[in-house]
Write a protein that binds this DNA or RNA. Structure first.
Lengths: 189, 189
DNA sequence: ATAATACCATACGCTACAGTATGGAGCGGT
DNA sequence: ACCGCTCCATACTGTAGCGTATGGTATTAT
């Protein structure tokens, strides 16, 4: 139905994609082997061939998510030379309704495993770092760039949660565009 | 040990407090009857005398949390006449390391039950409303006040999550004070 | 003192899921 | 045509938690 080509066998990535979808909408705790198997139309006999256990799936799924997100940012944001334009592009991307953001915001409230805390800390510091770098390139001093990037990133994180809470989903493209413009005006000048 | 006066029997509030503590640190999904009973030094025979089921506990716990938070804001924030000072006080309170904030930020990523979504939506809109009101009283027009309050509230929510992620807990009083000052400078002038 | 009520322990059945063990279908290589 | 590998189904065991049923103890009321 959903697939154009009906596959005969599943790959590890199929399981990871299904897991990431669950994480995005219900959190890591909701990633369960048997329900996922049912959803994919197989039994857990398949699962334990591809993965050693439940946490292994979570681990590899998050790895895939992280790589995909990194690639996206590197290609669409970090390639922009002008720091102000780069920040603006980041604000716009931040308000875009993509799964990656949902996963991130869900993980931010998850305290179920130290692995997750570790990954989150790394990612967050990475992102703060490149925001700070952009502010510095704009000519602001170290201290201001640090505080301002923390502020900007807080807006990003906060908005993700607000969107889910107030609308049940991320805003559509038009709303996102408008909000990004306002945020940029307040935090970029 | 922890109690000065060793109580002979538990009250419903004892269960609610224990539940709120779990919600703050591990989320609603982690609220389980038997583990809580063990923690409180009783069996679930006690629990099912005080509550009809697990969700009943969650429901009443969140009700208690909500009332307590409302009372706190009404007494320490809404009593301030000057809108600018009122907003500043709110910023400071927002960065304070209290359990109420932890609970709120945890719930924001919880999609386990429609009850929670409903409560969150109400609370968030309430808070946005009084922020917007303060900005209006400062002289800003309707549209700006709305966008700015959304921005400010996003910072609040985002900062909560960032704190947990980067430090494992909310910042101490000194850091909170500094950050609140910076935020106020950026969002209050 | 006795009866009622509040509070809790114990023991039970039930379900969902984790993980293992094993067998089997289908396919490519030779 | 047979072998071996990939992928999955089936059938277990084990555990954790939900909710119920019922009996027991301690406190309070009368």
């Amino acid at each position: 139905m959903n697939e154009v080509v009906k596959k005969k066998s599943l790959t590890a990535e199929d399981w990871q994609d299904a897991a990431l979808n669950v994480i995005a909408h219900q959190g890591v705790a909701a990633v369960a082997v048997e329900p996922l198997a049912r959803e994919l139309g197989v039994t857990k006999g398949s699962f334990y061939w591809h993965f050693s256990n439940r946490m292994d799936l979570v681990k590899q799924s998050l790895k895939k998510w992280r790589l995909g997100d990194k690639k996206l940012v590197e290609e669409t944001i970090l390639t922009i030379k002008n720091p102000k334009k780069r920040l603006l592009a980041w604000f716009k991307l931040s308000a875009e309704p993509i799964q990656s953001h949902l996963i991130y915001s869900t993980l931010l409230a998850d305290r179920s495993h130290t692995l997750i805390s570790k990954i989150l800390k790394e990612i967050t510091l990475e992102r703060l770092s490149h925001l700070q770098q952009s502010y510095r390139e704009m000519g602001f001093d170290e201290k201001f760039a640090k505080a301002q990037s923390l502020l900007a990133y807080s807006v990003y994180v906060g908005f993700l949660h607000m969107s889910k809470t107030l609308y049940g989903s991320l805003p559509d493209s038009k709303q996102a565009e408008e909000y990004a413009q306002f945020v940029a005006k307040q935090l970029l000048s």
